[in-house]
């Protein structure tokens, strides 16, 4: 068992030193949401994710964000604290519309 763990550790270490870094990987993760990656890019990404929980979470979070924003796209963005049109803008638009009518 000990030999196995040691071997696993060595493989992980070797992969981390050989594969693109986390900084390069997060950029690929983002691009994977925009285009199909090449075979080489896909293999590197898969291997990196296999040994790196941080990048795994990173990718998961980007997809959580996308799924949430798309689902809420038509929800009234009520966040802008009480702010609809200002009174001044509302009056200006009202005058403009009345002239037009």
């Amino acid at each position: 068992m000990k030999v196995y763990d040691k071997l696993k550790h060595s493989i992980r270490y070797w992969l981390l030193r050989t594969l693109p870094t986390c900084q390069q990987t997060v950029e690929k993760i983002s691009q994977s949401m925009e285009r199909s990656l090449t075979l080489r890019e896909r293999i590197n990404l898969k291997l990196h994710l296999w040994i790196c929980a941080w990048c795994q979470w990173y990718m998961e979070h980007l997809h959580i964000i996308r799924e949430t924003t798309r689902a809420k796209a038509d929800e009234p963005p009520e966040f802008i604290s009480g702010a609809g049109l200002s009174d001044e803008a509302r009056e200006r638009i009202r005058r403009r519309l009345t002239n037009q009518n």
Partner: peptide, 24 residues
């Protein structure tokens, strides 16, 4: 700066009324 586990699903986030505020 490394990511942490969020323990949240999109379904839970969708329910949150302050999502757009934080996002914005």
């Amino acid at each position: 700066y490394a990511p942490n586990e969020w323990h949240a699903t999109p379904a839970e986030l969708i329910e949150r009324s302050d999502f757009w505020k934080v996002f914005n």
